[in-house]
Amino acid sequence: MEVSPSVVWRNKPYRYRLEVRRCPKCGRAFREEVEVCPKCNERTERVRMAGRGKLLSWAKVCQVPEGFEDFSPLYFGLVELEDGSRIIARLTDVLEEPKIGMEMEAVLRKVRADGSTGLIEYAIFFRPAF
């Protein structure tokens, strides 16, 4: 079994909703449940990253890892979001070559299904904005 139910469950806030834990003092964002900033000792606040942004760079991954053969090639983008944060995410609905600087928007998509249990993993992808 490649997909762990507990991992899918605990990663839902970031993977489904782009929710991160932000330190009110240093402003750093943790993409998982880091409840207290290890540097500032401040309680982190759950905030949602912006769902739109600008494409800074992209890659078309043709040599895909084991388990992703059905989805080849994989597109990835480095996106600068409207709130100033940055994210590396899968791109979807890529119908023509992406252009640096193009507007992108978040969308929930299927990542893969576990071969033996059928458990499906979803996550936020980015696609060219309408």
């Binding site: 993409r31 040599q63 989805f71 994989l74 983008g77 640096i100």
Partner: peptide, 24 residues
């Protein structure tokens, strides 16, 4: 990092993002 790799980002893919950024 798991939150960047889990949907398929590879070692090569990470460098490809850097390459396109650098080249542009």
């Amino acid at each position: 990092s798991p939150y960047e790799s889990f949907y398929g980002l590879t070692y090569a893919g990470a460098h490809a993002l850097a390459a396109r950024l650098y080249m542009s």
